[in-house]
Nucleic acid binder design. Structure first.
Length: 293
DNA sequence: TAGTGATGGCTAA
DNA sequence: TAGCCCTCACTAC
């Protein structure tokens, strides 16, 4: 279930479990045997995310590059006490594990990724150069995304999903922020005002860190307020650190403005939420609230 | 128990 | 545009 917030949280989890020490790497499935051999025994220096791409820096200028795609998973799990410090082959494997990272206390099994490769620093830079600004990165500049949007005839809902325009935004965030700002999803990028683009960007900058902190996408005003209050009270750091899998411990009820609410009444105006395919995924929107003005 | 669609996106055609 | 990665949650039977 990877939009960008998932990958940022994953990078932090990997670092908490593995960074700073040598890691055992293997490919139980066999499809990444050569790459795993390059990483095996090297120290993990640190992990970072750019949009939906995960980069883990190992010793000797070796970078693990992972993209989960739609169906990939990479849970980081504490080893049961009886398996602490055992040899890698003694830790049971279930299913098709492309890459396993293991140390004395944790195991991380990567399954079903779209991309799993060992890269050079130059190759990592080339991947990052193709990506647009990531609202979760402090160095991100929304202006580079706007340069593409303002010249494009494509619908804004398609541009929001284009990783060269914005890195890390997936189908949930695109539908929800377009609704929140009452933007017609079919409005061509070149007809969008810059102020509208910046308001969409600002919403993402404010909402996506909540996704990282709580492990789920939060967009509804009341849930966002509750999440912010919890962060202000200082209770979230421990909560985040305890997250291991993707769906463990959902703190908030799953609830959105329009996402996956086809045919249900719009929470704002009561008219039916509509849906249609756009850019390869199902777009959800309110035809009345998001009418072009 | 089997089938299906999904919070992606690359490659081949 | 179809295939693919081959997981996971949910639904129909």
């Amino acid at each position: 279930m990877p939009e960008g917030h998932t990958i940022h949280a994953l990078a932090a989890r990997l670092d908490r479990a593995f960074a700073g020490h040598a890691v055992r790497a293997s490919s139980p499935q066999g499809r990444f045997a050569e790459g795993a051999a390059l990483l095996d025994g090297q120290a993990l220096l640190g992990s970072q995310a750019w949009g939906k791409h995960l980069f883990c820096e190992f010793d000797a200028d070796r970078w693990l590059h992972v993209h989960l795609g739609l169906i990939g998973v990479f849970p980081v799990v504490p080893l049961p006490m009886e398996l602490h410090g055992v040899e890698p082959e003694q830790v049971p494997v279930t299913g098709a594990v492309r890459l396993r990272l293991l140390n004395q206390t944790h195991v991380a099994d990567l399954r079903g990724p779209m991309t799993c490769a060992v890269r050079t620093p130059e190759e990592v830079a080339a991947v990052e150069a193709r990506l647009g600004p990531d609202p979760l990165r402090p160095d991100a500049d929304p202006g580079t995304g706007w340069d593409r949007v303002r010249r494009s005839r494509k619908p804004v809902a398609e541009l929001l999903m284009d990783q060269q325009v914005l890195a890390g935004v997936g189908n949930v965030y695109r539908c929800e922020v377009l609704f929140a700002r009452r933007v017609d999803p079919y409005r061509p990028g070149r007809e969008l005002r810059e102020s509208t683009w910046l308001s969409l960007w600002q919403d993402l900058v404010e909402l996506m860190p909540l996704g990282v902190a709580f492990g789920q996408i939060l967009t509804m005003d009341d849930q966002v307020a509750d999440a912010r209050a919890e962060i202000a009270a200082g209770g979230v750091e421990q909560y985040t650190a305890s997250l291991t899998g993707e769906r463990l411990g959902e703190r908030f009820e799953r609830r959105f403005f329009v996402y996956q609410r086809t045919g249900e009444p719009c929470r704002q105006c009561g008219s039916r939420v509509r849906s249609a395919p756009l850019a390869g995924r199902t777009l959800y929107w309110c035809g009345r609230c998001q009418r072009r003005r």
